[in-house]
Nucleic acid binder design. Structure first.
Lengths: 147, 147
DNA sequence: TATATTTAAGTTGTGTGCAATTTAATTTTA
DNA sequence: TAAAATTAAATTGCACACAACTTAAATATA
């Protein structure tokens, strides 16, 4: 057994599947003019508006080098705006615009469509998510850390 | 239950775990001066040398826009070289240099180290791989297609 | 066999992803 | 309280990832 064989490593299927998933999101996100990472930022904001850039970065594991241009793009699209925390001028606080709030309605359709596109039923979805959550815990990627 | 919540989607854990895995590869690959995608190309070549660029792209699901500069970097590192198929001058055939063959010995250490870094024992490794293989099949990402 | 079509790489442009550095604001501490 | 350390964004530079397009070679077909 060759340990270097692609088929004998975890890394490659993870890499390939992850790329494939974001590829299948692309046509669903196109009507909203969002890329997959931009959509993730919007998900964070729809869950909690008026949030520091720092916190978005912690949730998504992204640094300012990635987020700064991404947020600028979302501003250009008219979905968010930047404010500063008056108590700490270093902090950039991101808020949804009205338009950014409105497209949430369209985005609500996406999770169901994605499961369809991925060909997963409810049971499979839950099974995969459990395994991923478990692995995320093991890699210390969980927010809650109750694992 | 909010369907748009990060924690209720498959996409995000996949995205986060995939990034985390390649992050954990980075220090292991640094001594070889390889990035993670470059390492994947080397894995393909160590499995089968003298292979068309096209075929590498099919294995890794990457197009020439990604592979051309990546291969140029591997040439710069002295690990591979380009030749043309004399029977079809369109085809670029990639071959390992002596140096590219030699570093395979160092790379042999990596799979074991990665499982250690990810904190997975043999049993868990197999369990995760089965699930990923299953999902890859379902997404039509498998070469064999026997699923 | 000349023309059209297809195919393989390469090129260009946009958008991440991340390391390393810079800038400005805040906090620590000497 | 002035200087040092820390913190949050922004900037710079490099390397993917991929869509769209170009170029050159091979194949198909009229």
């Amino acid at each position: 057994m060759n340990p270097l064989s692609l088929s004998n490593q975890l890394c490659f299927p993870f890499y390939a599947i992850s790329k494939e998933i974001s590829k299948r999101y692309r046509p669903l996100l196109a009507p909203l003019n969002l890329t997959y990472p931009q959509y993730l930022v919007m998900l964070v904001l729809w869950e909690q508006d008026f949030i520091p850039l720092k916190t978005i970065g912690e949730r998504l594991q992204l640094d300012s080098g990635t987020l700064t241009p991404l947020i600028n793009k979302l501003i250009e699209l008219g979905y968010v705006k930047k404010t500063r925390n008056p108590d700490d001028e270093r902090q950039l606080v991101i808020t949804l615009t009205e338009k950014g709030g409105t497209i949430k309605e369209d985005a609500m359709e996406i999770p169901a469509k994605i499961n369809e596109v991925l060909g997963l039923d409810e049971e499979e979805f839950i099974r995969y998510r459990q395994l991923l959550d478990e692995l995320a815990c093991r890699l210390n990627l969980s927010a809650g850390d109750d694992c």
